[in-house]
Design a protein around this nucleic acid. Structure first.
Lengths: 248, 248
DNA sequence: CGCGCAGTTGACGTGCTTCAACCGCCGTGG
DNA sequence: CCACGGCGGTTGAAGCACGTCAACTGCGCG
């Protein structure tokens, strides 16, 4: 419920909005920029491209020309194994940048696919690089965002040491934190990804994910109905996840 | 054997070497810089600080003033759980940058500890930021390195989906690739980290790591003697790891 | 209305963890 | 010089958490 409202609110209200009026301003690339600088960034951004559910933003092997800011909706990033199974490396929410892993090699090493009807702002990377040379604040923010991504990925590495319960708890906490940072109460969240996708991300079997969700519900931590989740005892989830303070 | 030779070679020959003469030049931050620009970078770097085995480069919670380039030796990065166990998030080899995860928050979220006698170049971050505003090539290289780190961390996330054999194979391949990039034949490598540390990084029990090493040896993939490893059938290790081409 | 896919639940097998004993290298001190 | 203690590493045996296989449910869509 809250998840889809989230999406549609942003979609409808912001299709033609400039960075300075965007409600994701303080999460996104322009943070810290003002007036002129903000407008210069604004001018290179190809704004508000809609991406249909299940459409690709880019595919593994594509030349990286742009990075993307999620404006509304959500994405999954994944690679394929030799036998063709998806291996999900992350999910992206509004205000987050996708494609940063491709800067080094110049081509995308993963595929990004919309989980729902979404919108992105396309940021041509070459121009972004030029511009962040000219605007110190932009360079700083770009470095910050990349650093945050590194920190986030490293906390995801820690998942491999954890039990199924801990993994799912961490996953939920991460979602809650990110939704909260976007100004949502996040007591109830609407998952835009399937159990299979969650399982792939967490390195578990679908059945295990399903069972752990059921156990969480039995223990009164949350009520789960397919993709809509209402969290009742966030403290206990935090304890399970082993992350009292905010994770992000 | 080859590992420690590796370290000492670099140590001895390079204590007073400027970036332009450093044999890690093409892996490190200065890549692509020339003459003036290179010297300006050189001038802000506090060079060649020795770090004793088991000494900290920084600890979790420290204010991040500098990032570090490994000059020789190796480091582990880790966080602690509530019950005080190390959770290793990565290992750093010569030519690699440590501390990038701290840019976002301004303080270190992990601890970096030398696995052996090592040397680092300290790079004051504020000055680096200023300088990379002035030198486009430096900004580009910094972004590249951070992107590479993101890509590397994301491939580490995939570990949680893999079996013990696959995890260890991936780990070895990653080391081999990185040693090779540094110009070493890498048929024989000398691990600078203990089994416990490998196990922590891979999310396995020590005993499992030990057993898998034994199995690899029985199958003739490599000969293992404590920390020195000679790889005989790198192809088969690649197959196990599921990474035919280079991983990095 | 009925097909199909997403999700759940149960029964069973197994790969990894845990617990425990043991080995061998290395440094220290007698 | 050897004896000893300790730590890093290996190996074996037993238990358990998770994966696999399979059946079932309920929602959504044509």
């Amino acid at each position: 419920m809250s998840g889809s409202e989230f999406s549609s609110q942003v979609d409808i209200s912001s299709l033609k909005v400039a960075c300075k009026d965007c409600n994701l301003y303080q999460l996104c690339l322009p943070l810290g920029l003002e007036n002129d600088d903000l407008e210069r960034l604004d001018s290179i951004i190809k704004r508000r491209r809609p991406v249909k559910r299940h459409a690709f933003l880019y595919q593994s092997g594509d030349i990286m020309k742009s990075i993307f800011a999620v404006r509304s909706g959500s994405f999954k990033s994944y690679t394929l194994t030799d036998d063709g199974t998806e291996q999900i490396t992350g999910f992206s929410l509004p205000g987050e940048l996708i494609g940063l892993d491709a800067i080094s090699s110049g081509q995308h090493i993963s595929t990004a696919k919309a989980l729902e009807m979404s919108h992105v702002c396309e940021i041509p990377f070459e121009k972004l690089e030029e511009l962040s040379n000219a605007i110190p604040g932009l360079q700083r923010q770009l470095l910050r965002i990349m650093s945050k991504e590194i920190a986030h990925d490293q906390s995801a590495i820690l998942l491999s040491k954890k039990s199924a319960e801990e993994r799912l708890a961490c996953f939920i906490i991460s979602l809650v934190n990110r939704y909260e940072a976007r100004g949502f109460s996040a007591k109830e969240i609407n998952l835009t990804m399937s159990r299979v996708e969650i399982a792939s991300y967490l390195g578990l079997a679908v059945e295990t994910v399903s069972r752990v969700f059921s156990r969480f519900q039995q223990d009164g931590l949350m009520s789960v109905n397919r993709r809509s989740i209402e969290i009742n005892k966030i403290d206990k989830v935090h304890i399970l996840a082993g992350t009292k303070p905010s994770t992000n």
